[in-house]
Amino acid sequence: MLIAQRLALGFLVLFVVSLIIAAGVDALPGDLCQEMQGQGATVETLKACREEIGLDKSLPVRYVEWLGGMLKGDFGTSLANGREISELIGTRLQNTFFLAILAALISVPLALVLGVLAALYRNGIYDRAVNVVTLSSISFPEFFIAYILILFFSVNLGWFPSLSNISPEMSIAEKAYKSLLPALTLTLVVVAHMMRMTRASIINLLASPYIEMATLKGMTRRRIIVKHALPNAWAPIVNVVVLNLAYLIVGVVIVEVVFVYPGLGELMVDSVRKRDIPVVQACATIFAATYILLNMTADILSIITNPRMLHPK
């Protein structure tokens, strides 16, 4: 029941967000056609242009048409070069997901291991060091981390390229090699949060009677944490992992710009600069939808893994 409610809420939010994105264009001073033609606009050309992109229809009609197109994969055409947006987005979307997945593959296991270790050696020198490092790493702007990595790994050591100009013809291994630095940057950004949550949820459990029992039985600390505490800590950990995946999808924007990675984020920033509104709309919709869907997944997962939440007070 609660799951159905969350699902319904998620789709409602998705709907409202699409409304906001679609209606946003109407907030433009003037309209899209004036924006495109600038000073050279005449009454006739404006009229023709409005008819061509359907601006003469009313807002609800336009919204339904736009949404229908979106669902069919037809995003309209770019203002800047008149190309089909779906064509522009296609491979870029794949690239962005590739980068996010690569970053997730590195960061999730790393965060889990670091979190468990921090819980194991709580209040020790290791724990404190990890705490300070993670607290600092979330305070760093992404581009700072990115450039430091470039400075060390590509300029000084020469191990990795500083530009991740991947193309569809490359093999997966080559792609992974070229996108390793951006993936590492993203890892450093998200690992702190996941690691702290892992540590906190394990430490929370350490006060429970069954952990005390295990201690009294004479089990080692390592065994208690890995065998007894960790399985029960999964729910909050899974939740925070999915939330961070959502963040990864969105956080790629800046990293992609630094490494000139041909992803969706770079396209979006580029289009914002050119004020190419249809492209920005399409990118924003894809990003927002992914983000909302992943957040919804996180909520539903935490309900499934914790049956107590099925019975709210």
Partner: peptide, 13 residues
């Protein structure tokens, strides 16, 4: 529910 940076980019456009 909308990621802030994406929303900001849209509004700035």
């Amino acid at each position: 529910a909308i990621p802030a940076l994406i929303f900001a980019l849209l509004l700035l456009t």
